[in-house]
Amino acid sequence: MMGLVISAALLGGYYAILATGLAFMYSVMNIINLAHGALIVLAAYGLYVLGTQGIALPVGIVVMSVAMFAFGMLLHKTVLSRASGGGELLPLLATFGIAIILDNLMFQTFGADNLSLAPFVGDLSWASFELPGDIFVGQLSVYILVAALIIIALIETLMRRTDLGRRIQATSQDRATASLLGINTGRTAAIATGIALATGVFAATAMGLRSAWGPYSGSAQLLFAFEAVVIGGIGSMWRVLIGAMILAFAQSIGAAIHPQGFLIGGHLTFLIVVFYRLPTWRNAIAKFRQARVQA
């Protein structure tokens, strides 16, 4: 039982790290980036290629963060800035198209083989901490959870305590006024996209170390990330962490009930949260409570 709680919490850490970039882009640019998963897989391939060249993983992470930041700025300038000017549908369509392009380009370049980053980190992927009560906890998942906490704290600090963060917020809330204050809104939005994609490198590291992945792994990662974001709700980045934890617990409980129940548990929880938030349900629940008070 304790083991299940701990492993679910650690899995939640992984989902949090997956979801951060997606939530960041949604909250500051109102874009649901359907290429989020494919971009994470792209970063994982980058890390893999650097690893095979003998570059240590931490150095690879730095290199890929810079590369993905630059790619994010490019992506904004070429696609997103144009798409977001054309209403609500266009960014969805454009980012979905990009996901298809990336998935299949990666398939063509790297083949269908499932890869892992684990060989680059020695025995870290199976090393574990021993807790009192004969509970063993994988070191890797603990580090992933810690990394998730650090990344979320950094993004929160960036947004609330720095000039750049304020400019990103101003740009996302009222573009015209931000320009009148001298903010280069196009550049600011491009930087925000770059930051979102750079956080994806950490998600890629976590994904690459804990499991085998292939060119089409992106859509599953996107689905987990999105479920975590929606369950947590929009607002602070810490809500993403809560959403990720709930998703991980739901999946773990599902898996405990039925061998195939892992994903089903997550999907059902997502749907329950979405339905609970529907205004009609809320009203119905409020009325029911009122009726009970009066009775």
Binding site: D163, R166, R167, Q169, A170, Q173, T177, L181
Partner: peptide
Amino acid sequence: FPDMTVRENLMLGAS
């Protein structure tokens, strides 16, 4: 920017 403080609004002006 209604969700930002007075100070944050002022500091944005320094952009």
